[in-house]
């Protein structure tokens, strides 16, 4: 069989990148979901989401280490509680005073929040990467073949046999598979929550018209606070999934959130299915371009080129529900 080659690269590599891209994209979907949630609940685009992600993963790694790297679930639970508190705090202290202010002011406020959080996080944790050993072998895990200790080593890869028809096997880091599953699960959970739970409905009502919602007796402030809390939770989840295995890096996670912005716009700013699909597309584009060109092109250029293309061709995004206010 002739070697299958497309664009100067063997086919199995392209298939490999496609798979990796979907996995990476699932994290973007999770990030995008957190962004869309706040847009839906309060019309604010949260530029500080990346720092919520970072904060969440730092909480998690600190508590996890304090517990001797033994009790992940407890660490996750405490992190979740802390993040809920952070979400309510941000709404109360930072966003509520701006209620009714123009869009510009809220954008500036979330930008100010990025700076404040960056400063605080640097002060408390520094900015060096901290290993977060989630998607790795735990203490006592042995290699069944050799009996060697595997503590801290990455999990065995998942190998899809495709040598016969693509010329090479597709190999996937198990960390990706796990993060994909976690992301997919969370995305599903929150989509259902937003659509079917009473709180979800209230949130939508508040976003639609806060004054009216208040008039009919809905707890507007609590609901907005809850939206921020959920966004903070989602951010923490994305941050933890991202850093599990490779470590919490204060220099990268906020940038990762920026790459999810194109995903949100591609999906249509207020659409949850759009955010999910947008995230996956950005992931695939990023990894394909990284493979074909290199990682700066994949990460610093390609997602933002997609963003420009969206603005040019379809500013309302794939699933944009409202026609964008045209002039």
């Amino acid at each position: 069989m002739a070697e299958c080659v497309v664009l100067g690269k063997p086919c199995f590599l392209l298939a490999q990148w496609l798979m990796t891209g979907v996995m990476v994209g699932s994290i973007y979907s999770l990030v995008a979901l957190g962004l869309v949630l706040i847009v839906k609940a309060s019309g604010i685009f949260n530029f500080a989401h990346g720092y919520l992600m970072l904060l969440g993963s730092l909480f998690c790694v600190t508590i996890f280490q304090a517990l001797g790297e033994q009790n992940l679930w407890l660490a996750l639970l405490v992190t979740a509680l802390l993040m809920v508190a952070v979400g309510f705090l941000i709404e109360r202290a930072v966003m509520r005073p701006l209620l009714g202010q123009p869009l510009l002011t809220t954008i500036m406020m979330t930008l100010a929040l990025t700076q404040l959080m960056q400063g605080l996080i640097t002060l408390f944790w520094g900015v060096s990467a901290i290993p977060l050993n989630i998607f790795v072998y735990g203490p006592g895990d042995m290699d069944p073949a050799t009996g060697a200790a595997l503590t801290g080593l990455p999990l065995k890869p998942l190998i899809l046999e495709s040598k016969s028809w693509l010329g090479g096997n597709i190999i996937i880091k198990q960390q990706f598979v796990l993060s994909f599953l976690v992301s997919a699960g969370l995305v599903l959970l929150f989509t259902l929550f937003f659509r079917y739970s009473r709180t979800g409905l209230v949130m939508r009502a508040v976003a639609e018209n806060p004054r009216l919602a208040q008039a009919v007796g809905l707890r507007v402030y609590f609901t907005l606070g809850l939206a921020w809390a959920i966004a903070a939770l989602l951010g923490a989840a994305a941050g933890i999934v991202q850093s599990g295995g490779s470590g919490v890096d204060g220099n990268t996670i906020p940038l990762l959130a920026l790459r999810a912005f194109p995903a949100v716009l591609l999906g249509g700013l207020e659409s949850i299915p759009g955010a999910i699909l947008g995230g996956i597309i950005i992931g695939v584009v990023e990894v394909m371009v990284t493979g074909l060109v290199d990682s700066t092109t994949g990460q610093e250029f390609a997602p933002f080129l997609v963003l420009i293309l969206v603005l040019l061709i379809r500013p309302q995004g794939l699933f944009g529900q409202r026609e964008v206010e045209r002039i």
Binding site: T20, F176, S243, V287, T296, Q299, E300
Partner: peptide, 14 residues
């Protein structure tokens, strides 16, 4: 090449 802090370099290794 990869960016400092990249959480994944499998694509480049492959």
């Amino acid at each position: 090449y990869f960016l400092p802090g990249s959480p994944d370099v499998t694509t480049q290794i492959q």
